[in-house]
Amino acid sequence: MRYDKMGDILYFDTCAPYLEQETEELENEIIARMNPASGEIENLEILFFSRRSEQMNLRELLIQADF
């Protein structure tokens, strides 16, 4: 997991992004990058993360993931 303060994007990566990944917007401003062969999600990008966290008054982020 990493946060780009300049772009205000929270990234969840299981591998480094690569050109062949397929990209799909799952919800409003949440982007999934998928393996082109298996269709499995390898990376998630949550755009405008600070705005989202302020709107939701998040104090902690709970994530369940199977890596």
Rank of each mutant, 00 (worst) to 15 (best):
M1N: 03
M1E: 06
M1W: 02
R2I: 02
Y3Q: 06
D4E: 12
K5C: 09
K5T: 13
K5R: 15
K5A: 15
M6Y: 08
M6A: 15
G7C: 08
G7M: 11
D8W: 07
I9V: 14
I9G: 01
I9L: 00
I9P: 00
L10M: 10
L10C: 05
L10I: 02
Y11A: 08
Y11S: 09
Y11D: 05
Y11M: 07
F12E: 00
D13I: 00
T14Y: 04
C15Y: 03
A16Y: 05
P17K: 03
P17R: 00
Y18I: 08
Y18K: 10
Y18P: 02
Y18R: 13
L19I: 10
Q21P: 00
Q21W: 00
E22S: 07
E22F: 04
E22Y: 01
E22N: 10
T23Q: 10
T23W: 03
E24I: 12
E24N: 11
E25R: 07
E25M: 11
E27M: 12
E27V: 11
E27Y: 12
E27T: 14
E27Q: 14
N28G: 10
N28V: 10
E29A: 13
E29V: 01
I30W: 02
I30M: 09
I30E: 08
I30Q: 08
I31R: 02
A32M: 08
A32W: 02
A32Y: 02
M34A: 04
N35A: 01
N35W: 02
P36Y: 02
P36E: 00
A37F: 09
A37N: 12
S38F: 00
S38E: 02
S38T: 11
E40G: 00
E40W: 01
I41N: 00
E42H: 08
N43L: 05
N43K: 04
L44Q: 06
L44E: 02
L44H: 06
L44G: 03
E45N: 04
E45D: 06
I46Q: 05
I46P: 05
L47T: 09
L47H: 15
F48A: 15
F48G: 14
F49S: 09
S50V: 05
S50A: 10
S50C: 07
S50H: 10
R51S: 14
R51C: 09
R51Q: 15
R51V: 13
R51Y: 11
R52T: 08
E54D: 13
E54S: 11
E54A: 12
E54N: 12
E54Y: 05
Q55G: 14
Q55E: 15
M56L: 15
M56I: 11
N57K: 14
N57G: 11
L58Q: 07
L58I: 12
R59W: 05
R59H: 13
E60W: 07
E60I: 08
L61D: 02
L62Y: 09
L62I: 13
L62T: 13
L62R: 15
I63S: 01
Q64N: 14
Q64Y: 12
A65K: 07
D66K: 14
D66N: 15
D66W: 11
F67L: 06
F67A: 01
F67G: 03
